[in-house]
């Protein structure tokens, strides 16, 4: 039992190390490239850092009177509000689908499953045409509304509440005379928190990184999120140099909130694993 598994684990470890390098090298590249001036970017050795990070950030902050920060605030709004509403909606729907039996439940769930398989990208143009008809194109709502409904989030919340909220607990709350909403808020919701945090994170990352939906929905560049804004800095036509160093610095700054969010919410995931282990 002692020696053999250790030796056998070498190959998987190697594979994992290669995988880690594959994932981390581009991040390291962004980190290093963000410290270079535009002339250093393509002339100095790839992983030798320059000393222009502060200068790049200052230049980025000054770009069109601080528009970058506005894009960052927009991204935070779209992702934060969108993910919170999405988690709430997913929690409600998932719980309802898991704990109530009503006519059409299977049909709804199957349609939902089909929805999970449809990539959001495909829906962007039809959603634009619909929202434009409602007079909502080029508004904050046009990006927020489609982000709130997440079939995958509802699916996850259903699976999670089916497993994490015992029927017996719901039943005994009922016999104690609690109303359905009260049962959901006071009894089921606390048990579903780790699952909903997962939904929130998934949605947050998804909305934060989404390009096509806001690209199509928004015409006004003051409503752009970071993804769309940075691309406008990159593609200014053949005749104009792409602002590589600013875009790279912007990309670096734009992943920082995601890193912070994951670190902050990580403990909920640990809790999830531990609770599972105890119950098992």
């Amino acid at each position: 039992m002692a020696a053999a598994p250790v030796r056998a684990a070498r190959l998987p470890s190697l594979v994992l190390l290669v995988g880690a390098a594959y994932c981390l090298l581009p991040v390291a590249w962004v980190l290093v490239a963000a410290t270079k001036t535009s002339s250093e970017l393509f002339s100095t050795s790839t992983f030798v850092p320059g000393g222009a990070l502060a200068g790049n950030i200052a230049e980025l902050a000054a770009y069109r009177a601080g528009l970058f920060w506005r894009w960052a605030a927009n991204s935070a709004l779209y992702a934060g509000v969108g993910a919170a509403l999405s988690a709430a909606l997913s929690g409600l729907s998932g719980y309802a689908l898991a704990k109530y039996s009503f006519p059409g439940r299977t049909v709804i769930f199957n349609v939902l499953l089909a929805g999970v398989l449809v990539p959001g990208v495909v829906l962007a143009v039809p959603q634009y045409l619909l929202l434009a008809r409602m007079g909502l194109a080029d508004t904050y709502a046009s990006v927020l509304l489609p982000s709130i409904v997440s079939p995958f989030g509802i699916y996850l919340a259903r699976v999670y509440s089916a497993a994490a909220v015992p029927d017996a607990v719901v039943e005994s709350a009922r016999t104690d005379g609690a109303g359905e909403l009260r049962i959901f808020l006071r009894v089921a919701l606390p048990m579903m928190v780790p699952g909903l945090v997962t939904v929130f994170l998934f949605q947050f990352v998804g909305i934060w990184n989404n390009f096509l939906l806001p690209y199509i929905m928004l015409g006004d560049d003051r409503k752009f999120p970071l993804t769309v804004g940075l691309v406008t800095m990159l593609k200014q036509g053949n005749s104009q140099p792409a602002l590589y160093n600013l875009v790279i610095t912007g990309a670096l700054l734009s992943v920082l909130p995601l890193v912070a969010l994951f670190l902050a919410l990580q403990r909920y995931w640990r809790l999830d694993l531990m609770t599972g282990a105890v119950r098992g």
Partner: peptide, 15 residues
């Protein structure tokens, strides 16, 4: 290239 090339060269090959 075209008339606008100096601006491009300036940004990618300032040296």
């Amino acid at each position: 290239s075209a008339i606008w090339a100096p601006a491009v060269l300036e940004s990618v090959a300032a040296g």
